[in-house]
Design a protein around this nucleic acid. Structure first.
Lengths: 234, 234, 234, 234
DNA sequence: AATGAATGAGAGTTCATTCAT
DNA sequence: AATGAATGAACTCTCATTCAT
């Protein structure tokens, strides 16, 4: 059931276009039916190839499933790296990553379903090469968080792994709900408030609400905290 | 495959103890193998009954799966309501809920696996009565958040549904990682920092972090407080 | 492909009559079509059971094949032992064994086909428990040969294993030809001459052949035939 | 599956060297894996050609199998005819044939496996042209036997077909055992004793045991049979 | 002449589920 | 109430074979 990861057989590329069309068909079918309910025959029909052809390109139904993210995630990750070069400040970078993470799923509904409903619960997937690409993407977030800590943008006592868990957890939760219930019609609408809520917690210099409190609570003589511009939005 | 929800057949009482032992066996088997990889025969063996007997108590393998949470969630939820009576303040209540939510999974590893790896991705489960119990539990959180908004503990512009998504998402993410990778050895160790991070963002009046700061600042007249060492850990 | 020998699963006997009828059906189908050309579906149809039922009784198609000889050989072997008690003299015993060996195949055509055309070339069969029963039967022949050597009926320099190879080889050759070509219409008709030819070689005191010779020799007065060079060896 | 015998397609010559290398590869693979377990792909790999190329030279996997003996048997048979010219006496000729028959298999292990384990049980092979070559070789034996009968070397009442069955059966039995069990390490070591045993039975003039008998049975005036030297052994 | 690529056609096997006892 | 036994219904995967190039 687990066995061969990586590319099939002799790693022959065969026809890359056909390969991709099989992957797209699989994504669609898996997305709709789930892994076990989907049959290879379904996928073959959708891709306009024979079942046997699918096995030319992938060694098993499971490998086919696991191969779905590779392309999209690699592309996503590369673009992330590229974009982050032009963004200044850890906070802005983090915001960027969150936006992109959300839109990755928002823009690829079938992909979102496959990841959230199927792959996330699959133990074998973790042993996959493909999974590493995703992990690498995770490191991005950690690095940005660390950068923010180092340059004073974020609380110095921040636990990057926990914060990443919060970010990813929130996103996954939202995307999963969308997959299952169609609920947050627009995933994007959540992004700003999510970032806002998150930032109030992780910014070392919490210009927003947090500042008041300090002063307020202190009951000392001193200037009232001035709300910063980004609060105007909320 | 979907079909019958609710209890089996004529809802005959049969032997409730045996019913429970089947459920426990199923929980363990599903937890280890996943839904499709687990066989009714596996479960029957573990429960020391015949396969046919399982069908006396449950109409299908899927109904058996869906029946697993009912008991535990109902109990959890009832206790929540009870406990919250004695907790004062929305923030404290929320903290309580988060602790309890985490310990629900931490204390029931098999249950956690079943929920995170199997049920969360199952579309049919949403149509289930059992699912409602969980939803009701979700409402708890919303109510507490609203309460906090109303009494000024939380930001007035808070979006309760989003915050709940953040809380649940974070918890689910952590629990899932634990299920799959065994990573956060102790789920509880994350609770405080999670709450801390969350609170800094959602409290209109952030008593927590601020309080510490006050002390620091106290000794000074003038400049903004400089983060001290005790903040590092929370 | 090899794996489980011995009885299936929990060695449950289930319905022994049905088991036997499956075996008989398999024997017939395998006999006609060969192993790979025969399908489990063919056998199921012939036995009036479902394919799944076959897998209740046997773990695989191959185990089903290997289970065919057990019954018949065991029975054959037991009867051999019983009969030999009443036969006096190694030569007579050997003759008896040869007759019975031939009739085993002559009386069970399908069985003969399965053994000669399928099992004989199957490497996995050798690892089987069932194969041991056949081996035990082979020991009979060896014992009788040894007995004949010991009591002076057979040449003292006889090599029992070779002689057994000759006997079995001859029988198998004849049976195989019959299976494939239908050629020796009556296998039995060969028995006497085979035994006769064999005995002239292995009897220290060859009562048989001599009779013919007598006639030939009778007319001549003269020297005994001169051994030719090739005899020197023996 | 049966269908086309004879050479492939248009009997185009193609490259005879490549043809042979395919045959050799097939022999090796079939020998190791058996017919059904071997794949055309296996053979193609071993022969360093593509699968499709194999189908240029042979119409089917089965025809490929059936083509294996042709070469070797034809060669064997021609040499037999040649050699027999120089051998005098039917007994010597028969001995020669037996030696050669055994060494045919002893010297070509893969070929032996293919013939004994695969072809011997294959009904379709009988309908093949290739099979005729083998049959012709069988006629050799019959002719020699007949020659021996006619010139008084062998018993006049000998049944050539039975004797050939004994010879071939014995050889095949030994070779098969060697193929499956590796048992008679040296097939040749059996030849002499086999011939010896055989000759004592089929020689009109059996000098050994048989001689005495003649006298004894005859009840004529003459010396009692004297046990010959080889009896001293026992 | 040679082959990369595609596929038709099945086959064995597994399991959830049923039902007579 | 409990179950032994039976089975219907699929599904994944394999491979010999073909064909366009």
């Amino acid at each position: 059931m687990t066995g061969n990861q990586g590319n099939s057989k002799k790693n022959r590329k065969l026809n890359p276009v056909k390969r991709l069309s099989i992957l797209k068909a699989a994504e669609k079918i898996f997305s709709r039916k789930g892994f076990h309910e989907a049959t290879v025959s379904d996928i073959a029909k959708k891709a306009n190839v024979s079942e046997a052809t699918i096995y030319e390109y992938f060694t098993s139904k499971e490998e086919l499933l696991f191969s779905i993210p590779a392309e999209i995630v690699r592309e996503y990750q590369e673009k992330n790296v590229e974009i982050l070069q032009y963004v200044k400040g850890a906070a802005n970078k983090l915001r960027t990553l969150i936006y992109r993470h959300l839109s990755l799923y928002a823009d690829n509904e079938d992909y979102a379903n496959v990841v959230m409903l199927i792959l996330k619960g699959n133990r074998n997937f973790l042993k996959t090469d493909e999974y590493n690409v995703i992990q690498r993407s995770a490191r991005n977030t950690i690095q940005v968080l660390q950068e923010g800590i180092d340059n004073g943008e974020f609380r110095p006592d921040l636990q990057p792994y926990l914060v990443r868990a919060m970010i990813w957890g929130t996103i996954e939760h939202l995307v999963t709900r969308k997959s299952l219930l169609g609920k947050p019609e627009d995933l994007f609408s959540m992004a700003d408030e999510m970032i806002n809520t998150l930032f109030h917690g992780i910014l070392a210099d919490s210009r927003n609400g947090a500042i008041h409190l300090r002063v307020t609570v202190e009951n000392k003589i001193g200037p009232a905290p001035v709300p910063t511009e980004h609060l105007e939005k909320g």
